[in-house]
Structure formats: structure tokens, C-alpha cells
């Protein structure tokens, strides 16, 4: 059951990452001159979304034992 919970968590985080990548690429294609700023902001957002999954793993995975 807990494994399924982890799967759901990873699914949500994957959707979030995809949305960030989508928005980032769209913005970059619309304004190619702002790629540097967009990349920085995108990477920071990616890092924070990724952290959610890692925290989930660290809170949830020990219960798998």
C-alpha cells in the first residue's frame, strides 16, 4: 500500500515537473533573449518541486520496512 502511495507522490511530482518544463520552454520559445533568466528560475522551481518528492520518500519510505 505504501508503495502505491509513493507512486502517487511521484506521479504528482512528475506532473509538476512537466508543467514547469512546459511553461519554461514556452516562455523560452516566446522570448529567446530571456533564456538565461528563465533557465535559472526554471531550475530553481525544478529543485523545489523535486524536493517535495524527496521529502515524501524520506517520510514515507522508512514505513515500508
Amino acid at each position: 500500500m505504501n508503495v502505491i502511495g509513493l507512486g502517487i507522490a511521484s506521479m504528482g511530482v512528475a506532473i509538476g515537473l512537466g508543467l514547469i518544463g512546459f511553461a519554461g520552454l514556452q516562455g523560452m520559445s516566446r522570448q529567446p533573449e530571456a533564456i538565461g533568466k528563465l533557465q535559472t528560475a526554471m531550475l530553481i522551481a525544478l529543485a523545489f518541486v523535486e524536493l517535495v518528492f524527496l521529502l515524501t520518500v524520506f517520510v514515507g519510505a522508512p514505513g515500508l520496512k
Binding site: F48, E50, L51, L54, L55, V57, F58
Partner: peptide, 13 residues
């Protein structure tokens, strides 16, 4: 915690 866990989780994971 976020800085360390991110790096740890990515590399170890």
C-alpha cells in the same frame, strides 16, 4: 535540510 536532502536523494537515489 532541503539543500542536503536534495543532493543526497538525487545521487544516492
Amino acid at each position: 535540510a532541503s539543500l542536503s536532502l536534495r543532493l543526497y536523494g538525487n545521487i544516492f537515489g
